[in-house]
């Protein structure tokens, strides 16, 4: 039962050829093998969204994805958002609006927001709430998070 699996995957624009165990989770691959620790583990059962990454344009909970099945996929983690030392507008807005408290939900929250804005650049508050409904903030800073996403949407429209 030791069939290692070879995968090719693009993470944050870089191509990787990797050998993974069948029972390695995408989350563990990112954090432990690739050192991308911006993706967080919290509940481990797909309820909290702290481990959210974008896979082929759609958000997924990386704690519920096998590394073996990401062969050929494109994955964006929070580390992939800033370009040449410049923060992504969402990251800027989260800081400006004080939408980061303990910070544990922030990477997932920002990636869910990015997936939304990539498809819908001018969302309503209701659409934003639905988009981040799978990301729980235990500091309960939702109002500021909402404000930050609205402000980022405006910035990105300019």
């Amino acid at each position: 039962m030791d069939n290692k699996i070879n995968i090719k995957v693009n993470i944050n624009g870089d191509d990787y050829s990797l050998e993974v165990e069948p029972n390695t989770l995408l989350l563990d691959l990112l954090r432990n093998k690739l050192g991308l620790t911006g993706t967080k583990l919290a509940c481990g059962t797909g309820e909290c969204g702290a481990c959210t990454v974008i896979m082929d344009g759609l958000t997924v909970n990386s704690c519920l994805v096998l590394a073996a099945e990401v062969d050929g996929k494109n994955i964006t983690t929070i580390e992939g958002l800033s370009k040449n030392g410049e923060l992504h507008p969402l990251q800027e807005s989260f800081i400006e609006e004080g939408a980061v408290q303990c910070g544990f939900c922030t990477p997932g929250m920002i990636l869910s927001s990015k997936a939304l804005l990539d498809k819908n650049p001018n969302p309503t508050d209701e659409e934003i709430k639905i988009a981040i409904s799978g990301n729980l903030c235990r500091c309960t800073g939702y109002k500021k998070i909402l404000k930050a996403i609205r402000s980022a949407a405006q910035k990105m429209a300019c």
């Binding site: 165990e21 029972n23 481990g44």
Partner: peptide, 13 residues
């Protein structure tokens, strides 16, 4: 917090 899963063999037919 639930982390690990048992070992298994993986098939993708």
């Amino acid at each position: 917090m639930l982390k690990r899963i048992n070992k298994f063999e993986y098939f993708a037919p």
